[in-house]
């Protein structure tokens, strides 16, 4: 059986409070807090991008797996904020982590689903025996246009998953993908900020895909919602995943650990993978875990995982998601945030 042999997450230390963004645009912070269930979000430093976040997360994944980096035969980074439009993110990572040069590398993009997409392909290659180990990463330094609802959520971070067939930290029991052509959110070539269809991103997009994929994987695997100790859905805001959970029959308790969006924000491709990492940070051997991602455009990937006996000792080898969410933080003013996110026009 194939599964996760190592995982790691990274969240930058800069934060901005929803209240600070609301104040900038004359909006009521309470509406954001209660309506979207967002308190604050992570912000990348000027020296952090999808590549550096991926390297930090990937380094932790390798540390937890305890394998020689050169044994990794495939690396895929899923992101919608690859620093280069042309030139892969993954090539810098394989050099930094000592994986190069005998490795297959590609950058993926599928809005917020690119991370689980990278995980899905990595798992498949390992299962097929094509490579011994493969790493799938979801990471983003998400952009939301100023004064857009997205600005309250679009944040920075990511998680890396190393798949193999031996010494598993979590077995992958089942996978499922559900994909249609649904233009709920997009960014055209050369555009700086993404655009979205407002409420169209909800029912026909997020909910349809998350719920369809989750129902199908439950049916395919034969499990009921109550069988799971933990569940995580993509977190475009605080509200959507909780609403999907209710509809699908999952409890708040099952959602609590992976629901990190209220203080992390939406790390796009890194969102549900980081929620999963927060779960692996605490799961007990034998716990069943369900993850369903969502990417606009649109599609969802679902995985059913089962934690192994090896997980507790290995997770101690790298920082936990909570330690990064609750550890040292720097709170930015909107002005600093605008500078960090390069929203200020400067002279060359």
């Amino acid at each position: 059986m194939a599964g996760i042999v190592g995982y790691g997450a990274y969240i930058p230390r800069n934060r901005i409070k929803a209240e600070e963004i609301a104040r900038q645009w004359g909006k009521d912070p309470e509406t954001i807090r209660r309506g979207l269930l967002l308190e604050e979000k992570s912000v990348p430093g000027l020296d952090e991008d999808t590549i550096t976040i991926s390297v930090a997360a990937g380094r932790s994944a390798i540390a937890r797996a305890g394998i020689a980096p050169a044994k990794i035969g495939a690396v895929y980074i899923g992101s919608e904020s690859h620093p280069y439009a042309v030139k892969p993110s993954g090539t810098a990572l394989i050099e930094a982590l000592g994986i190069a040069p005998e490795v297959h590398v590609a950058d993926f993009e599928f809005a917020c689903k690119a991370g689980t997409e990278a995980m899905f392909v990595s798992l498949g290659l390992v299962e097929s025996g094509r490579v011994e180990y493969a790493m799938g990463i979801g990471a983003d330094t998400s952009q939301g246009a100023p004064n857009d609802a997205l600005e309250f959520s679009a944040s920075a971070g990511g998680a890396a998953y190393l798949f193999g067939r031996e010494n598993l930290l979590a077995e992958v029991l089942e996978t499922y993908s559900f994909t249609t052509d649904t233009p709920d959110f997009w960014r055209r070539e050369g555009q700086f900020y993404p655009r979205h269809g407002g409420r169209f991103t909800g029912e026909p997009a997020y909910f349809k895909h998350v719920e369809s994929a989750t129902r199908a994987i439950l049916k395919k695997s034969g499990f009921k919602p109550a069988d799971f100790r933990y569940v995580v859905f993509h977190m475009p805001n605080g509200k959507f995943p909780l609403q999907a959970a209710r509809t699908l029959g999952f409890s708040k308790e099952q959602m609590a650990t992976g629901w990190v969006v209220n203080t992390m924000g939406n790390t796009y491709s890194g969102s549900s993978p980081t929620g999963l990492a927060a779960i692996l940070d605490v799961a007990a051997p034998g716990d069943l875990i369900l993850i369903t991602s969502f990417g606009s455009g649109a599609g969802s990937d679902s995985f059913v995982l089962k934690a192994t006996k090896l997980l507790p000792e290995r997770r101690a080898l790298a920082p936990t998601v909570r330690s990064m969410l609750d550890g040292p933080r720097r709170y930015l003013t909107y002005g600093e945030y605008a500078k960090f996110r390069e929203k200020i026009i400067l002279n060359d």
Binding site: L46, T52, P83, D348
Partner: peptide
């Protein structure tokens, strides 16, 4: 840690 050190213009 691994970080972006500098960028050659835009």
């Amino acid at each position: 840690v691994f970080r972006l050190i500098r960028r050659e213009g835009h």
